[in-house]
Amino acid sequence: MILYTMMPPELIYPTAENEFGKQMMVQYNGIPLLVEQTEDNCYQVLRVMSSDPNHYLDGRCCPGAKISLLT
């Protein structure tokens, strides 16, 4: 099926509510991070949201790193 429309795809195919719930913003050692919950109750870093270049050099929270927020 081809849809010829100028409507943005997200208006035609609404995203499931739980898709939005997966991602969240957290502070990890004072660094704002966008994380996604993984199956094993850990959080995987998706994006570093800080404007401080030093935060991007912190190996513990590089995008892709798994962190635990239970401490």
Binding site: D52, P53, L57, D58, G59, C62, G64
Partner: peptide, 14 residues
């Protein structure tokens, strides 16, 4: 996770 082992560290605030 990262494809690398370590990253350089800056000492002072930028």
């Amino acid at each position: 996770q990262l494809g690398q082992t370590n990253v350089p560290q800056l000492s002072n605030d930028s």
